[in-house]
Simulated scan of single mutants.
Amino acid sequence: NVMLSETYEPTSQMTNGDSLIKANGQAFELTSRGTGVVTLSLPTYVDLIGLNTTESKGWVLQGVIQEIELGTGKVVFEWKSLDHIPLNETFATLATDGDGKSPATAFNYLDVNSVSLTTFHGDNFLVSGHNTHTIYFINRTTSNVDWRLNGKASSFSLSDAAKFHYQHDVHFLGKDENDIMLISLFNNDANSHTKVSPQSAGLTLVLDINQMTATLKKRYAAPTPGISSPTGGNLQQLSNGNYFIGWGAASPFFTEFLPNGTVVMHVEYAPLNATTGGSPSITRSAWNGRPQDEPLIAGLASGSGNNQSTTYYASWNGATEVAAWQFHAVDLIGGTPKPTVMETVQRTGFETQWIVKGKRDMGFAEAVDWEGKVLGETDWVNVVAA
């Protein structure tokens, strides 16, 4: 796990504290105490008690949570699922989620895909088990599972609307003085071979710790019907109180909602089909990227005679403050390159183009922000034939 500055240069790096345990790439969260919390996976040879198999032993992929100091790499907390969660809580099968015959095909009985820090009765963790349909409250002091939400061994009574399956991205959102907790999660309601309902959704749930009941506060469904995400997906509470959803690895969409469920933004950045994927997680945050690399430009001449033209293409990978490009066509006059035509073109995405009449010799461009301030300038490049 690598942290980058606004120039995209590494500022710190965190590695897990055991080379035999592999980060599963599903969750990483920074804390206010200078540590990072990461989810990992560890193939372990164990008794297959509680599973529908004739084999007495096999390889199981257990989930691991580590909290690691950023500066030193020291592991200050470690939790392993097989010490606390039995195999019979799983909804996975040896036929679909690893046959358990080798470390490479270890049975993924839990699939820890999310960890969230809480301030509920101390600094503790909410951990999501994808294949058990359960959220676990992990006591950081004792490492015990203090309670389970949903699944086969739920500590709570859940309303039907509050139930979930194959979930991702659980977050602790807060609590009141009466121990009423608010959490959020992305309810996939599907995996790669099972679909519980036709549509995935974001959920906010109210947990009454005294009565041990869980009820739905709000369900956030995509404005495009039929979005079912077998893997990935996230629900983020924004600083303005809105909710932002990335619809998972199979759905190239993201949506922002008002707390009451009204859609204020919905983006479909690729068609929804069998060959187009989405992202496992999409978040919205304030970010000013200022790459150290200079912007780039290319110029291509095409046509002939009076129909000749030159097309310039400008881009600056990672520069988020560019609002427009000031393009300059350059001609050789008496052997000396001189800018002869200039036009400001609004940025149109990763790459912005400008077409000017005639075959030009060279060109360059300046990236400018919304106030017209020059942020960077490309090299002067020769125009080549298309």
Rank of each mutant, 00 (worst) to 15 (best):
V115R: 02
F125S: 09
S116Q: 04
W147F: 09
T134K: 15
K101Q: 11
Q167A: 07
H171S: 08
F107A: 04
F120A: 05
N150H: 12
A106N: 01
S114A: 11
K152Y: 13
S159G: 14
V145K: 12
L110W: 05
S154N: 09
S157G: 02
R148P: 11
L158K: 04
S143Y: 13
F164C: 06
L173Q: 05
A153I: 11
I135F: 09
V170W: 10
H171V: 05
N108C: 00
G98T: 01
N113I: 02
D160A: 13
A153V: 08
S116G: 02
H171D: 10
H133Q: 10
P103Q: 04
F164Y: 15
D99L: 04
G174I: 06
S154R: 09
N108P: 06
F125R: 06
P103K: 03
S143H: 15
R148Q: 12
R148E: 13
N113T: 11
D97F: 09
S154H: 07
L126K: 06
S114P: 02
V170E: 09
D111F: 14
T142Y: 08
D99G: 03
T105H: 13
F137D: 08
H121K: 15
K163G: 09
H130K: 14
A161H: 09
G98E: 01
A153Y: 15
